[in-house]
């Protein structure tokens, strides 16, 4: 399962980011998120959404073996991560993110919290 985004439906409310940070860190802080929303308003009138498509490249590239597939989603083990950030630099979606104050990259683990809350259904869980 992975999160699929239809950017033209995104309103830029960032509720997905709030939900993500709550799930991953139990914190009120949309900066600690694995989903990235940026504005493309003055070009297209819409936002851009970057989210992991579970392609697995991070697992393939990780020299420490810190990434593994659990319940259909790739997860990073903070105990194993050496902060080399190869995954961050190489992620095709730009969806491996390092929150301020953290070292281990955070990525989407397909929990579905953002999908459940997204008011315009711009986000969906797909196989």
């Amino acid at each position: 399962m992975r999160v699929d985004a239809t950017a033209s439906r995104c309103t830029g409310c960032k509720l997905c980011q709030l939900a993500c940070a709550l799930h991953q860190f139990g914190e009120n802080n949309p900066k600690k998120t694995a989903i990235l929303i940026t504005s493309d308003l003055l070009n297209t009138g819409h936002y851009r959404v970057a989210v992991c498509d579970q392609c697995g490249l991070c697992e393939e590239l990780c020299p420490a073996g810190a990434v593994s597939k659990v319940d259909g989603a790739y997860v990073v083990d903070p105990e194993e991560c050496t902060y080399c950030y190869i995954c961050v630099n190489e992620c095709p979606q730009g969806a491996m993110l390092v929150p301020s104050g953290k070292h281990t990259p955070v990525k989407c683990i397909s929990c579905g919290d953002c999908v459940e809350l997204c008011p315009t259904s711009a986000l969906a869980m797909v196989e």
Binding site: S8, T11, G12, C13, K14, H46, P119, T120
Partner: peptide, 8 residues
């Protein structure tokens, strides 16, 4: 398109 405020 639509353009929301934070968390709305």
């Amino acid at each position: 398109g639509s353009k929301a405020c934070f968390g709305c």
